[in-house]
Design a protein around this nucleic acid. Structure first.
Lengths: 357, 357
DNA sequence: CTGTTAGCGCGTTCAT
DNA sequence: ATGAACGCGCTAACAG
C-alpha cells in the first residue's frame, strides 16, 4: 500500500460550518418557527404567498435541511425500518434487498440495512441498535437462532416480518419461498429425467426452518415415488474439515454408483446457492471441467454463475419476497392487528444442460 | 402465491406498549433524570452504590433502552455514518462492506448502508437522506457522476471518503485499488504468456475514474512492449442492444484472428467482474463449454465463480479497502484537517487454467 | 393566516 | 452525592 501525499491542494481549514436550524431560518425570514415548520410540512393553505416566498428564499440562502432526528423525536415516528440480513454474500439476500428497497421507496420508508454476517452476536447487536434508534419496524432474515436473541421484536416489541426463515417461539408475519413445493418440484424433475440416485445436500438444518422444510419435502417426494427415502448429505460450510469429510463421503457414493458403464448419472440437489457453489467447485476440482457428465446438479436459488455452469435451478421470486415483506410490515406499522400471516411464493424451475435430456 | 391463514393464534391486541423513557426510570427508581443519565454514561464515581443498584433494578424492570435519537439530538453526534454503495450486486461492493462493518465495529460507529442500485436519482435521494439524518460522515462508492449531485458532502459539508471512484471537482479522501499497477500487472502477465492479441473490455469509462485509469494503464503497458496500442472494447451493460453489437464485433475479431491453425489464442482482459461474467456467458453460449480453448479470460476482481470457471483474476484487497476507508473517515470525524489523502492498495494476480501455460 | 407556548427524550450546567 | 432547570431542533395545540 502507498499513502500518497495530497493530490489536491489542502482544503482551507473551513470552520466546521454548523448547519442551519429551523430557528435560523425563522430569523432569516423574519418570522416564527411555526411557519417554517408548516412550510416544511406542506401546509401551504395556511401561509400567505408572500410569507411563503420569504421562507423559500431564507431556506435557499441558508441551505437549510431539516433535522430528521429532531423531527422523529417529536413526532414519535421517523420512517425508518431495519432490514437485518443474515448473509449478504448470498446473492439471494441482495436480490431480496432490491425488492425491499423498491417497496420502501414506494411507501416513503427508509431501510437501514444491517448485515449480521452469519454471526449471532452481530445479529443481537444490530437488533439492539435498531431498537434504540426506534425504527418503526424490522424485516428479519434471521440466523438460525431461537426467539431469545430477538427479544425486542415481535409481539410486545416493534413490528417485525420474517423473511425466509421462521424463528421458534416468535409469532410474526413471514414471507418466503414455498419450500415444500419447490423441493418437490426439483425432486420430481430429477426423477422424470431418469435419475435413480439423488442426493440432497444441505447445510445444518435443525435450526433453520426453510432448510428443514426443503429436506422434508425432498424426503416426502422420494417416498411418494416408491423410493425408500432420499439420501441427505449435510454440509456445514462454516467448518472446512467437516465439509471435506462430507465431500469424501459423496465421492465414494459417486464412484460406487457410477462405475457401471453408461449407468445413469448421480444427481445432486443443492438446498441453496452456497451449497451448490461448494459442490461445483469440488466436482470441478475432482473430475475436471467435464464433471457434469458424471454428476448432475440442481440447486434452489439461481445465482448468476448458474447459467455459465449450465446447472438447473429453481429460482426464487426474491424481488417479490422483499417487496411483500415491506408491505406486510407497513400494514403493521399502520396499526394492523391481524394475527401472524404467511406469504409463500412459488419457485420457478429453470432447466439447463445439467439435467437436459 | 398463497397467503395462508395465521399459523399461530392471533396475538392478543396488546396495546402498543410505549417504551419507557428516562423519566419513567427516574420515577421508578425514586430519583431524578440526572442520575439515570449519569448511570447510562458510566459516571459511577458520582453515584452511591445504593442508588446505582436501585437504578439498575428499575432499568431491568422497565426493560428500558435509551433513545439514541434523542441522545444524538442533544449531543450533536450520533455515531452514525452512511455507506453509499453504487451496486450491491457486484460482489466487490459486498466485500468492501465487510471491511467497513468490521472497522465500524471496532471504532464504535454504526454504518447505514444505502444502495443506489446504479441509479443516479437514488444516489441523490440517499445522500439527501443521510444528510438530514445528520450522519457524522459518509463513505461513497459513487456512480460515475459529477460533483454536483454530491453537493452536501465533502468540503463544506459532512466528512466524506471516496471508495474506488473519484468524483470530479470533489476534494476528499480516497481509498481503492492501485488501478494502474493492477492493469499493468494483468497486461504483462498476458504478454508473458505469449498472447499476441489482447483486448481490454470495459464499461463506459469516461465518467468513472477507476475504469479510466485501468484503460490508460493497459494502453501504456501495451505501448511499453512495443505494441502500437491495445484494442479496447466498450460494453455498456445497461444497454443490451449495445452489448450485443459489441460482442458481435468481438466475435468477428476472434474469428479472424483465430483461424490460422494453432495460432495463439485471443486474450480478453475484463476491467471488472460484471464485464467478465457477461463475456464468459457469451463465449460459453457461442463456443460451448470449451470456449476457453479459443479465448483466454483475465479479469480484475475475483468473484466466487472465477475458480469454477478457471479464469485468471486480479483480486482486489476489498476488505482492507473498506477498513481503511472507515479509518480515514473516523480521523476526519475526529477533526483531522489534513488535505485530501489517497490510499492505493495493490491487487493480487491469481493465475488459473485460462492463462496457464 | 400567523405567532406563542409547551413539550418529545435526553445531557448539562449549576445549585444544593 | 444528587436533583432542578434549561435547551437541542422540531411539531402540535392554542390563541390572536
Amino acid at each position: 500500500m502507498s499513502t500518497t501525499p495530497p493530490a489536491t491542494p489542502p482544503n482551507p481549514p473551513t470552520a466546521p460550518t454548523r448547519r442551519a436550524t429551523i430557528t435560523d431560518v425563522a430569523r432569516e425570514a423574519g418570522t416564527g418557527k411555526t411557519s417554517i415548520s408548516r412550510y416544511l410540512n406542506g401546509e401551504f393553505s395556511a401561509l400567505s404567498p408572500e410569507l411563503r416566498a420569504r421562507i423559500e428564499a431564507a431556506i435557499a440562502r441558508l441551505d437549510y435541511q431539516p433535522n430528521q432526528m429532531a423531527r422523529g423525536l417529536k413526532r414519535g415516528r421517523n420512517r425508518l425500518i431495519g432490514m437485518l440480513v443474515a448473509d449478504l454474500t448470498n446473492p439471494y439476500s441482495v436480490e431480496v434487498l432490491q425488492g425491499v428497497e423498491a417497496a420502501c421507496h414506494a411507501l416513503g420508508l427508509m431501510p437501514l440495512i444491517c448485515h449480521a454476517a452469519n454471526e449471532v452476536e452481530m445479529e443481537r447487536r444490530y437488533l439492539q441498535l435498531l431498537t434504540t434508534y426506534r425504527v418503526e419496524g424490522v424485516i428479519v432474515n434471521a440466523l438460525g437462532v431461537r426467539e431469545e436473541t430477538l427479544r425486542p421484536v415481535g409481539d410486545g416489541g416493534i413490528p417485525a416480518v420474517l423473511v425466509d426463515r421462521r424463528v421458534e417461539g416468535l409469532v410474526a408475519d413471514m414471507v418466503g419461498l414455498d419450500n415444500g413445493a419447490a423441493a418437490e418440484l426439483g425432486t420430481r424433475h430429477l426423477l422424470e429425467r431418469g435419475f435413480e440416485n439423488i442426493r440432497f445436500v444441505v447445510q445444518p438444518f435443525e435450526r433453520v426452518s426453510s432448510r428443514r422444510q426443503r429436506v422434508d419435502a425432498f424426503d416426502r417426494a422420494m417416498r411418494d415415488e416408491g423410493r425408500a427415502r432420499g439420501h441427505t448429505l449435510v454440509l456445514d460450510l462454516a467448518d472446512e474439515t467437516a465439509v471435506e469429510r462430507g465431500l469424501a463421503e459423496l465421492d465414494r457414493a459417486i464412484d460406487s454408483l457410477d462405475g457401471a458403464g453408461t449407468a445413469p448419472r448421480v444427481a445432486l440437489f443443492a438446498a441453496n446457492a452456497p451449497v451448490a457453489l461448494r459442490l461445483a467447485l469440488h466436482l470441478n476440482a475432482r473430475y475436471g471441467a467435464h464433471w457434469q457428465s458424471r454428476v448432475a446438479l440442481l440447486s434452489i436459488d439461481d445465482p448468476d454463475w448458474a447459467e455459465l455452469a449450465g446447472i438447473t435451478t429453481i429460482r426464487q421470486p426474491t424481488y417479490d419476497i422483499g417487496y411483500r415483506a415491506v408491505e406486510f410490515l407497513h400494514e403493521r406499522i399502520e396499526g394492523a392487528q391481524t394475527g401472524a400471516r404467511d406469504c409463500l411464493l412459488p419457485g420457478e424451475l429453470i432447466v439447463r444442460a445439467s439435467t437436459a435430456r
